[in-house]
Amino acid sequence: MKKFKIQDSRFKIAGFLSLCCTAALLLFCSSSSAELTINTNHDHISIDFSYHGSEVAVSGVSAAGADLIIKIASPEGRQSLRKKGKAAGFLWMNVGELKFENTPALYFMRSTKKLEGLLDEEEMGRYLLGYSALERHAEIAPVSNPEEKARWFDEFVRFKESSRLYSISHGDISVAEKDGKQNYHISLSWPYQAVPGDYTVTVYAVKDKRVIETAMTQVRVEQVGGIKFLADMAKNKGALYGIISIIVALAAGFGVGMIFRKGGAH
């Protein structure tokens, strides 16, 4: 009885697997006419002491004639920022904090043509393409009405753009037709302000105002060596880190004092 049951479930698994294979094969065939690929020049960016940003080159193959959108973004999260406002009617100072929910810390978008001409609003919203889609997706608190939300989202983008963490532009993806397909390539300067973490790079092939295909890959930004050692120590061994910082400062102060004393005596 027991044995029979096991056999039965084995058959079920085998059946399920073969079904999957067929489905995958079918899917593969149907999309093989317009296979979209994506590659980056490196999937790891290491932060060491000499790090001053990097360069990320994104390339691949797409169906001929398709327009392309490339997006690089960090995972969505909550960001708290101080907001400035007028206190007592005329003095600019920090007047509280705003929380920006469901927003990426880094957001780059590049497209072959202006985004508004490539996709309609619904499609932009579905794939979170463009600032207006990001704005609709974001939640900002505390704001009292949609106009206020729009105003603070604009400020948010300006803040992000000033630290080189958000940018949108078009016309800088180079495309070359080859064997009925097209090769695309773009090189982006990677800002040193981008914090360690995983970043998703996605390419969208667009035809007739619709996204017909997507492909994605990841870039991991990591601290290594001395940078990692110091950052970990500051975070996990605060007391020891503080004491070492103080001792080094004291030693440096005394050391320079001694050097000057010798220099002054002669």
Binding site: L81, R82, K83, K84, L91, W92, L98, W152, S162
Partner: peptide, 14 residues
Amino acid sequence: FELTMTPSLLLSQA
């Protein structure tokens, strides 16, 4: 001056 001039960015790191 900083208090009375409109700042270029209204948001800053918390």
